[in-house]
């Protein structure tokens, strides 16, 4: 029961009803489980949404999280998306203050290395877009913070799908 904490990715297909998000997040809050990120949007099927949650806990906790999610009647499918079988992406928008041209150059080089984009520029700021694994986004943000003053960050939360033919869908 006292195994080490780990981050897991949980994929869900849910009914697109009002209050479903509240039921999911409410269950986490009520039982003291931690969510590190959550993303929601329409799925491939009308009337159903897809939720992707990154959660943290030891093995027993994660098992409980998945079982408790299963119990929620508005949730149609729940799966633990194991990293080895899953593609995961997160995107982030990072707004930085730019003091001089030198810094601007450095930032653009870094954005290039990370195959990001500059999506807005003013005389004082730049807004950068980066897409990748959570780790890639983390390290990008860390490096940017060393050369420029980060004013604002918005992250999408992790999106994930199984690799190959495996899916979390209604058959």
């Amino acid at each position: 029961m006292t195994s080490e904490n780990q981050q897991v990715c949980i994929g869900m297909l849910v009914y697109d009803h009002p209050g479903v998000m509240m039921k999911v997040t409410g269950m986490f809050a009520r039982r003291g489980f931690n969510i590190s990120s959550i993303s929601v949007g329409h799925s491939e099927r009308p009337g159903f949404s897809r939720i992707t949650i990154m959660a943290e806990g030891d093995q027993a906790t994660i098992e409980q999280i998945i079982k408790q999610l299963h119990k929620l009647i508005d949730i149609v499918k729940v799966q633990h998306l194991e990293p080895s079988r899953t593609t995961m992406r997160e995107s982030a928008l990072v707004k930085v203050l730019v003091k001089d041209n030198n810094t601007r150059q450095e930032i653009m080089t870094l954005v290039d290395i990370y195959t990001g984009r500059v999506i807005d520029v003013t005389s004082k700021t730049m807004t950068l877009e980066i897409v990748g694994t959570q780790r890639k986004v983390d390290s990008f943000i860390e490096l940017i913070s060393e050369i420029a003053n980060i004013k604002e960050i918005a992250r999408s939360g992790v999106l994930a799908l199984y690799r190959g033919e495996e899916t979390i869908t209604l058959d």
Partner: peptide
């Protein structure tokens, strides 16, 4: 009958 109760408190 409830999977979530199994292993919740006692291994």
């Amino acid at each position: 009958i409830d999977t979530a109760e199994i292993g919740k408190n006692v291994p």
